Computed example of a mutant assay.
Amino acid sequence: MLILGAEDVHQVLDGAEKDVLEAVRQAYVLHDQGRSALPHSVFLRFPDDRRNRIIALPAYLGDDTPVAGVKWVSSFPGNVAAGLRRASAAIILNSMSTGMPEAFMEGSVISARRTAASAALAAATLAARTPDTGVSLVGCGVINFEVLRFLRAALPDLAEVTLFDLDQERARSFAERCAAHWPELRIGPAAMADEALAAHRLVSIATTAATPHLTTDACRPGTLVLHLSLRDLTEESVLAAVNVVDDADHVCREATSLHLAEQRTGGRDFIEAPIGAVLADPAAQRRSEDRITVFSPFGLGVLDLAVADLVRRRARTLSLGTRLPGFLPAPD
């Protein structure tokens, strides 16, 4: 068994944004081609506690080097007030010849970066006619920090960032961290969510909201909203938008904004396209210049596997991690 901790994962992924973007892009395209197996994520919730959850994402991704495994990821929003990270995760990769587990690795870094990479791919592929030079980040947590990292890799013209968070101190700390990493960026706060939504035609929403609380009324025509936390936008805003998803069967579940829109309308006609098809043929889906486009990725397990496999292969090359002999029982 190869065990890779957070430091090992960081050593592989830090500075490898282009490689992660390509791994995620390839995973989306393979999934759209039917070269994956992707059961529904399993949500473990607790009696009298609807805020916290742990989710299992099993998946298989077929290619020249197929990979199978599972991510086990928790979300405990109360951790933030205690100075801990909201999300924690572990990923297991299995042998495709024996089925035996081969690698066990810290998964929260992989999870955050594959989410951010999917957002950046959508932003680059659903590009406006005039390149986006600014982005509004609603929610100043780990995910939007990673989104900014990958947007900078995918959108070279990005120069301005507007921030909004209900916790002003958190927004201030986030701004300081961004300025330390990317001093060339112009970073400013927004006093209200609508101010942030109106500031740029590229918006990333990553909050811990459990129920819809935002409309897109303040957004400019032609805005692309990266709706990463999935439960922020009202049903009316979803139904009025051009909707691109990662997988309709997955995203229309668990009381997401799109699930609520499906329940209201009785169908999914409001969904325009899956991102895999858009990536395979970018000319087939342009960003609307007069409507709001919303990208809502549920977060597919195949993305975790694609990035985890990248980490595993490079870790072997770099001799990273710990080999644990005797983890599995000896043969009979």
Rank of each mutant, 00 (worst) to 15 (best):
L185F: 03
T208W: 00
G188N: 05
C140S: 09
S204T: 06
F164T: 04
T125V: 10
L148Q: 02
T133H: 09
L197V: 10
R149T: 15
H213A: 12
G134K: 02
R129V: 08
F164I: 04
L230D: 07
G188A: 15
L202Q: 04
V142W: 02
S111Y: 06
A154L: 09
R149L: 13
P183F: 02
L230A: 07
L228N: 05
S118C: 13
A154N: 08
F145V: 04
V147A: 02
A179G: 14
T211L: 12
E184S: 14
T208S: 08
T215L: 05
I187M: 02
H200L: 12
V135I: 12
W182E: 07
D194P: 11
A209K: 05
R220V: 01
A124R: 14
L214E: 03
P131H: 08
D132K: 01
A128R: 13
R220Y: 00
A120G: 09
I205T: 13
D165N: 13
D232P: 10
S136G: 13
T133Y: 01
V203A: 01
N144G: 10
V135Y: 01
A171D: 11
V109T: 14
V203H: 01
L163W: 05
R231H: 12
T216Q: 04
L228C: 10
A122D: 12
A159R: 12
W182Y: 15
T216R: 02
C219F: 03
E184M: 09
L163Q: 07
L148T: 03
P183L: 03
P212M: 04
H181A: 15
A116Y: 07
A153F: 11
F145P: 00
S173G: 15
A209Y: 05
D194I: 01
E176S: 14
W182R: 03
P221C: 10
C219N: 06
G188S: 15
P221N: 10
L158E: 03
P212G: 04
R201F: 01
A175C: 09
T207F: 02
A218E: 05
V138R: 00
T162L: 02
D157Y: 03
I143V: 15
N144W: 04
G134Q: 02
R152T: 04
S204E: 01
S173M: 06
V138S: 00
R170I: 11
A198L: 02
L226N: 08
S118F: 08
S108I: 08
S204M: 04
V142D: 00
F150C: 06
G107M: 02
I205Q: 00
D165G: 06
S237K: 07
R113L: 11
M192E: 15
R152V: 09
